[in-house]
């Protein structure tokens, strides 16, 4: 008896192999295979402000902040193995430094933002430094505590405007600068991080994630590399915070809000962990979705959660990982 059975075979497209590993570009089609996805992403982001109205342009700015946070989270979680729930810490540190420089010293936003990005990242890294020995859930818990910590210090000591915050900070010149500043930053950090994780340092970071003892046994200080990674991630987060305080011209304890720690995770789950561009995409879907669902009043959160649960249960690999597979590979039935 001969049993005829088939199975689905999955192979990389020839064009992927030619273009990505061999770099043997000989036709326009092969060039396009490489260029089109990147161009779609860049142009898509850059053209988005032109087609939106005023209200949605503001939403786009907020979505951008979440996107950059989600990117930082994905970088730390998928490439360094640090599940960092300190998104609010980054936003708060960046936001407060930038806002305070502006309020007390009167420096313009375009000077405050870079300074706050750097200073905030240094402070955040120092704060997180003692807990870099921790892994997994412990690091997540500790990094989740710091924003709460900061809020209570500010309230208890009644410094930096206390519970009221400080309003009437200088805002960015106009809506176009606001939008393109954050969009440009997203594109730059996205491609920079993607390059970084494929360099040697990226290899070490991934090694730390997989087996830190083996990395240590190779004579590499894992704390030094983890510190570098946290610094890079907090640079992105602190930029988001500094930008946020000048977007609304206001700083207050809600810069340390839980949302900044939690929503990036949701964006990562939706977009696909480890794909870097996925979380950005996820943030650009989730934030407007949460706005669009405002019409449902209190049901909004329920719907929002249902969509997220649906993603986790039915497509846990995430949107981007799925799309990338479809783009790079083809399938056919094969008789065995």
């Amino acid at each position: 008896m001969v049993i005829e059975e088939t199975r689905r075979k999955r192979l990389d497209r020839g064009i992927k192999v030619r273009t990505e590993t061999l770099y043997a570009l000989s036709t326009w089609r092969e060039m396009a295979y490489l260029i089109v996805p990147r161009t779609v992403l860049i142009l898509g982001l850059l053209l988005l402000p032109l087609i939106l109205d005023m209200y949605w342009q503001r939403v786009l700015c907020t979505a951008g902040i979440y996107a950059i946070l989600a990117l930082a989270f994905d970088f730390l979680a998928a490439y360094v193995g640090l599940v960092c729930l300190g998104g609010a810490l980054f936003i708060g540190a960046g936001g407060y430094i930038s806002g305070l420089l502006n309020a007390y010293l009167g420096w313009p936003p375009l000077l405050c933002i870079p300074i706050a990005t750097l200073a905030g990242a240094v402070i955040s890294t120092f704060v997180l430094l003692p807990c870099l020995r921790l892994r997994g859930i412990y690091f997540a818990i500790v990094s989740f505590m710091f924003p709460l910590f900061a809020v209570h210090i500010i309230v208890a000591l009644n410094v930096f405007g206390g519970t009221e915050g400080i309003s009437a900070l200088a805002i960015l010149p106009n809506i176009w600068v606001e939008q393109y500043l954050i969009l440009g930053m997203i594109i730059v950090s996205l491609f920079a991080i993607r390059r970084l994780v494929n360099e040697d340092i990226g290899l070490i970071l991934r090694g730390i994630k997989d087996n830190d003892q083996a990395v240590r046994a190779s004579g590499i200080s894992i704390t030094a590399y983890k510190t570098k990674a946290v610094f890079i991630a907090s640079l992105m987060g602190c930029f988001g915070g500094a930008y946020l305080s000048h977007l609304y011209g206001w700083l207050g304890i809600s810069l340390f809000a839980m949302d900044f720690s939690i929503l990036p995770i949701a964006a990562c789950v939706m977009g696909g962990m480890g794909s870097l561009v996925g979380p950005v995409l996820g943030a650009f879907i989730l934030t407007p979705m949460s706005e669009a669902l405002r019409g449902f009043g209190q049901l909004r959160v329920v719907l929002y959660c249902l969509i997220l649960i649906g993603f986790i249960v039915y497509k846990p690999e995430g949107l981007m990982n799925y799309l990338q597979r479809k783009y790079h590979q083809f399938e056919y039935w094969e008789r065995v």
Partner: peptide, 12 residues
């Protein structure tokens, strides 16, 4: 499958 990783096929 959940992870989107390798596809394992068992026949027979």
């Amino acid at each position: 499958e959940m992870r989107g990783g390798e596809r394992i096929t068992v026949l027979g």
